[in-house]
Design a protein around this nucleic acid. Structure first.
Length: 225
DNA sequence: GCAAAGATTTGCT
DNA sequence: GCAAATCTTTGCC
């Protein structure tokens, strides 16, 4: 991208999870050598009491990194098919993670399209559709699609996303940048969780983005995204 | 050791 | 709007 960038400061992610989540909206996800996306949708999963969080069973082999220091990647496989990228937040010892649900593609769109096609072909079950045919702005809309477009998988769990040498990094435009307006809504895909967890407004989006996943925002016009 | 369910996506009815 | 695809993680016997 044209503008100068800098790695996100770790303090922004050591903050309480809801603050860290807001700070991630508008940040950049960089995938070496050529892919960049602007984060426009995230969800927070906080503590062992959150009945929607993987940390609700306490510390296990899978979620161990959630209990570690902030800025580290936690990638898990969902429904046996899709990898999902989380950013560990809050200080060491407190289990919290932010699920990165959607990006606005900024650079490397062809690489994203190729990666989507490659991952779809690997799951050679269903004939028909071509995931590489989605419009540019939807190449990384949804956590599974995002991980596919950026070639992110479970082997990257534990990777420091704030290390300038990491192949996947969190950055931001350098200098004094205006941050986007952020809207809070309920999290999705957690019908298994009881109230109040199911309805907590722990999903944060840039409401102006054409790259959001899921149903239309409350109050938005019924135009398709 | 086995059964159940899941932080999703896609295509078809 | 609904259901299938797919396999790891977790819980319970």
């Amino acid at each position: 991208m044209v503008l100068p960038r800098e790695v996100l400061p770790r303090e922004a992610l050591a903050a309480p999870a809801l603050e860290a989540a807001r700070a991630l909206v508008g940040a950049l996800l960089v995938r070496e050598p050529d892919r960049i996306g602007r984060i426009v949708e995230v969800e927070a999963y906080i503590g062992t009491a959150d009945r929607a969080s993987h940390a609700r069973f306490g510390r296990t082999a899978r979620n161990a990194v959630m209990f570690g220091p902030p800025g580290v990647a936690y990638v898990y496989l969902v429904y046996g098919m899709y990898d999902c990228l989380n950013v560990v937040v809050e200080p060491d010892g407190r289990p919290a993670a932010i699920l990165v649900r959607a990006l606005e593609p900024l650079a490397g769109l062809e690489a994203m399209r190729d990666a989507r096609r490659r991952h779809a072909a690997a799951r050679r079950r269903r004939p028909g559709g071509d995931p590489g045919a989605v419009p540019d702005e939807r190449l990384a809309s949804g956590p599974g699609a995002l991980a596919a477009a950026f070639d992110i998988d479970r082997a990257m769990t534990g990777l420091d996303l704030l290390d300038p040498r990491s192949p996947v990094r969190l950055e931001r435009p350098a200098g004094v940048g205006e941050r986007p307006a952020v809207m809070a809504t309920a999290r999705g895909g957690i019908d298994y969780a009881p109230e109040p967890w199911r309805s907590l407004p722990w999903r944060f989006v840039d409401p102006g983005s054409p790259s959001l996943s899921g149903p239309p925002l409350p109050g938005s016009v019924g135009r398709p995204r």
